[in-house]
Nucleic acid binder design. Structure first.
Lengths: 344, 344
DNA sequence: CTGTTAGCGCATTCAA
DNA sequence: TTGAATGCGCTAACAG
């Protein structure tokens, strides 16, 4: 019984030559039998497979990789401490790769360039087939450079270098989407409360909002209000805003957190959502969006799809398929809930 | 210029024999020079290092691993979709391993046993040095068995098999901690609202609460209220509870989400927190805990430390140090904020 | 159909 | 101090 309770490795792992010996065949035949390659007599194959099972043989992927030059591994290099973006992206990538086909090294650089370089070296040393770099905002980040011998794709945060391959959410389109939905809900006095102006996400969403308002022949009520990405700011900003412009009937919030703050203030002010005021936000972070009163209509960045696309780009590059450099913008999708349309 | 804009691998990666050739030494000498092993003349070493830098040689870790039997990689096998638990644990593990020393394969089984098995096989095939299994609740989970040739540690969700090595939060102690704090805050009419009774976390926390109340000579007001782990339930349950027992002055909430719901209802009922009612919760999920009015006093499960400990256990087992089997309970820590003690 | 041979990139004897 | 030879576990030519 090969039971090792402590979990410590007991003895050598079985090798292919062990299998071959037991099955009474040569190494090469055993290899072919196990991999279904070459012409092997059915009976022989059977013997080999049984022998393999008997000693619970697991092929050593390291040796295989050494030969064919591919490891079937990909590095995910991130600085997204909270894992809010990286996890959906990771899941998307796993989907695209196929479970168990490709494995992902997850490295957290914690926003530290030195640590990032360490991790990058470690990944290259382990001969990953490709690298996905996931930032924690949609602001462009420094490129890893072009001296990397494997394909690199930047996800969420695009690279500053336009000759790199980047995929990032289309926040501008998202801003449009938000306004178009509010307008479709019959709103015309629309205000915007969002995060810090230094973030590209805040700017882009605001730009999209202005575009769509213009197209609808409307004007924003007041000016876009930029500050913290927090519930506190959502509460404070909406209080100020409604004091100044009591007839606002629609709010675009830069994040679900801000929207939660807005809802709080609406409750305090006795404004009913969505009847008096409709609220749309960004991120569709379920934990926030589906637990509020009412639940939040929010724009989902499709991060999982973003992960899938990044993985696909990596594959294409590995296979030699040309991958167009530049920044690709992935549109979000509107998830409608009670903050814009009341349940019947 | 070794610039490859498309990111596709250009040509072969440099090998040690390339370096040796350029430096005009043998393979063996080059190896020794690069690894600082054996006696190599200073001048020779210099030449080798320069040659290596010149062609940006990166040692192939696969080949090394093949030789010394260790890959310097660890698998993190999880079913924690949202990444709420797994990320801190991953970070702790990375800390313990040392950045760049050990790399972590993150695999998400999505609660599917088949997929888990696939991933497990893939990890073993890649010859990880150890495996950390991270569950999504503190309920015991099936063991992976003892036919695994590398050390396995179960984190967060312990293994059902007592001969495995598991580390899990001490929820019972957490429950005690919550009550002791409320009592220290001068509360004596304490109620509990928590998640689904089928969860060990709900039960254990409730047990700890009862223990501590008993020790303090107090009784719980009403019975522990078990249902969803949601804000909705927090709101509804506290409304019911306060209607029945208007003199409650302290609430233990089973999660930050539930606590948020409680705060909402307190506001609706015109009860001031923490003056009239103090609220303690579990998880210390910052996004929820630090954005409420007031901020939440919450019990942090010390997940990062849990990750570090899991990694340490793996190391010990690899090194042959005996690791005591069984379930280790890691105490949480109380993070005090405005929901129990008002800011001055 | 099966077995022999030659590496993949590297670390490590052991001679020289 | 250096180098030639051996092998880690496996696959891919080839030859039998």
């Amino acid at each position: 019984m090969s039971d090792n309770r402590t979990g410590t490795a007991g003895g050598r792992a079985a090798t292919l030559s062990d299998v071959a010996k037991i099955a009474g065949v040569s190494l090469a035949t055993a290899s072919k039998a196990i991999n279904g390659r070459g012409e092997v007599a059915a009976a022989t194959r059977q013997r080999v497979l049984e022998a393999a099972k008997k000693i619970s043989f697991t092929p050593n992927e390291l040796a295989r990789s050494l030969i064919n030059g591919r490891t079937g591994t990909v590095g995910l290099l991130t600085s997204d401490l909270e894992g809010r973006f990286v996890i959906p992206i990771l899941m998307g990538a796993e989907d695209a790769f196929g479970a168990g086909q490709v494995n992902v090294f997850l490295c957290d650089a914690r926003g530290d360039a030195i640590r990032e370089q360490h991790h990058l070296n470690a990944l290259l040393t382990r001969r990953v087939d490709g690298i996905i770099v996931v930032g924690r905002s949609t602001d462009p980040r420094p490129s890893l450079g072009h001296n990397i011998p494997v394909p690199v794709v930047y996800a969420y945060a695009p690279s500053e270098d336009p000759t790199d391959v980047s995929i990032t959410p289309d926040n501008r389109a998202g801003g449009r989407l938000a306004v178009e939905h509010l307008v479709a809900c019959g709103r015309s006095k629309i205000a915007m409360i969002t995060g810090e102006a230094v973030y590209a996400a805040a700017q882009d969403r605001a730009d999209g909002v202005m575009d769509a308002l213009g197209d609808a022949g409307l004007e924003l009520v007041g000016r876009p209000m930029f500050s913290e990405w927090s519930e506190h700011w959502g509460r404070d900003a909406s209080a100020m805003l409604f004091r100044q412009f009591p007839d606002i009937d629609g709010v675009v919030a830069g994040s679900d957190q801000i929207a939660r703050g807005v809802l709080d203030t609406m409750r305090d002010l006795g404004r009913e959502v969505p009847h008096d005021v409709a609220v749309v936000s960004f991120d569709n972070w379920e934990i926030l969006a589906t637990n509020s009163r009412p639940e939040l209509t929010s724009i989902d960045a499709n991060l999982q799809q973003l992960g899938r696309m990044a993985a696909t780009r990596i594959f294409d590059a590995i296979d030699g398929t040309a991958v167009a450099p530049g920044v690709e913008h992935l549109p979000g999708r509107l998830v409608i809930r009670g903050s814009t349309i009341a349940r019947r």
